[in-house]
Design a protein around this nucleic acid. Sequence first.
DNA 1: TTATATTTGGACAACTTCAGTCCAAATATT
DNA 2: AATATTTGGACTGAAGTTGTCCAAATATAA
Lengths: 106, 106
Amino acid sequence: MEYSFGERIRNLRESKKMTLKELSSLLEIDTSMLGKIEKGTRKANVDIIHKLAQIFEVSESELNVSMISDQIANQVVKKYNQQAQQILKVAEEKVAYKSKNEMIKE
Amino acid sequence: MEYSFGERIRNLRESKKMTLKELSSLLEIDTSMLGKIEKGTRKANVDIIHKLAQIFEVSESELNVSMISDQIANQVVKKYNQQAQQILKVAEEKVAYKSKNEMIKE
DNA sequence: TTATATTTGGACAACTTCAGTCCAAATATT
DNA sequence: AATATTTGGACTGAAGTTGTCCAAATATAA
């Protein structure tokens, strides 16, 4: 199973033997903020994702997917617990349907 | 393909030959608010979902799934368009993984 | 056409949520 | 024991959300 986004960043950071302080200064954010991003209690904005991708030489869009999917999973489990899987399944169908129709429309 | 939540409510309402004014008064909200819920620009709270389920004699939890999945689908398409499907797929995996682990934990 | 009913959407105030920082306490490393 | 690192609470301003009011647009009926 894939890491959560935060764990992923923490692993990348530690594998480069960097401290929160060092990495956060590269990212131009507070040490505490980075700690929270790694813990999943704050989210990284596009700018931070971009910098992280550069620093660790990983795909930006893949990092983004990892972070957003994390947030959505947490949000939906926290609020709707038992229905969470069903909600996401239906949402996925709706997105698939939308994107099919977009192609036809434009 | 299933209706969007708003369309669904509108169909139910019209099938009972009710106006926005009539239904909104049963729900104890503003006419305009109900119109927006049907259009998808405002969301129904648990109370409203509950009343709608009673009025139209449909499953409350199913209505809920319909509404939340709508919101998530819209949110993710609007913000992340090309990555939307992938994000939801990964989120689904994460939820599946979480719920498996919850069972073991408790 | 005219009158009436219904639907729509912008503007707004009250309220909630969120981002990012600061700081001090807790934990880890030397 | 001294120093470095991580953690989390408290806080502020910004951003987003909710639900209402009202007037304009549209539909229906007379």
